[in-house]
Design a binder for these strands. Structure first.
Length: 216
DNA sequence: AAAACGGGGGC
DNA sequence: GCCCCAGTTTT
């Protein structure tokens, strides 16, 4: 006998299978970003900022300050210049330095691998901490950003007001292997097709599963 | 729960 | 020119 929750789980996994085919995401694609420090720096810079700008800034910072030790000593005015392309760059420049200092003082120059320790870092919330766990350590965690929240609700996989509720409900719905993929897949989908405004529903590979699909 | 932070690119 | 955007912290 199949109850409602089981049905939802099957639907959620089916959707992710289709999106994984569409966007070509596979576990070994993460190879390039397995260094937790790089993930942490890049994710902090990405807050409220588009990918293209984030990438340039993260590379600039990491090229000059490739370790927590060097970043902790970086002059904040130079950091500001390096991260100027991203939103909130003044705040983020200071935060990056603070984070690096805490890593050196409390964690022996390493990025911690628990949610609790990550959340204690300045400027690191649940989304960023989960990104470090998933992309840096491949520990199952669920980064819920605006894309994951919006798309999960449009699809009808969850019905939630806030990101934290989305995180709780999705976690119950998805087996661990899919937790590792859901953020990457939904962000790609959200940037290309399931956009906040004017989604391209006619091109959507999961329209038949979508509560919000209106026929486009 | 809502505002503050805070700036470049797309329309 | 206006509006939006891979969040977090503070009020």
């Amino acid at each position: 006998m199949e109850n409602g929750t089981t049905k939802k789980k099957r639907k959620a996994v089916k959707i992710l299978q289709i999106l994984a085919e569409r966007y070509g995401t596979t576990p070994w694609n993460w190879h390039t970003r397995r260094d937790p420090f790089r993930v942490l720096v890049g994710t902090v810079l990405s807050h409220r900022t588009r990918d293209e700008m984030t990438d340039a800034a993260a590379r600039a910072v990491l090229a000059r300050y490739p370790t927590p030790e060097s970043l902790a000593e970086a002059p904040v005015e130079i950091l500001r210049e390096l991260v100027r392309p991203v939103n909130f760059f003044k705040t983020k420049a200071g935060r990056l330095k603070e984070i690096a200092q805490v890593l050196c003082e409390r964690h022996g120059g390493c990025v911690p691998d628990t949610m609790e320790d990550l959340l204690a870092l300045p400027g690191v919330g649940r989304k960023t901490a989960a990104c470090v766990l998933v992309y840096g350590f491949r520990i199952p965690a669920l980064p819920v950003d605006t894309h994951v929240h919006r798309i999960s609700n449009r699809l009808g996989v969850v019905r939630t007001e806030r990101g934290e509720e989305t995180e709780r409900e999705l976690r119950d719905l998805l087996p661990d292997p899919w937790l590792l993929l859901v953020n990457e897949l939904l962000v790609k989908h959200g940037q290309t097709i399931c956009r906040p405004r004017n989604p391209l529903c006619s091109q959507c590979p999961v329209q038949e599963y979508c509560d919000a699909y209106g026929g486009d």
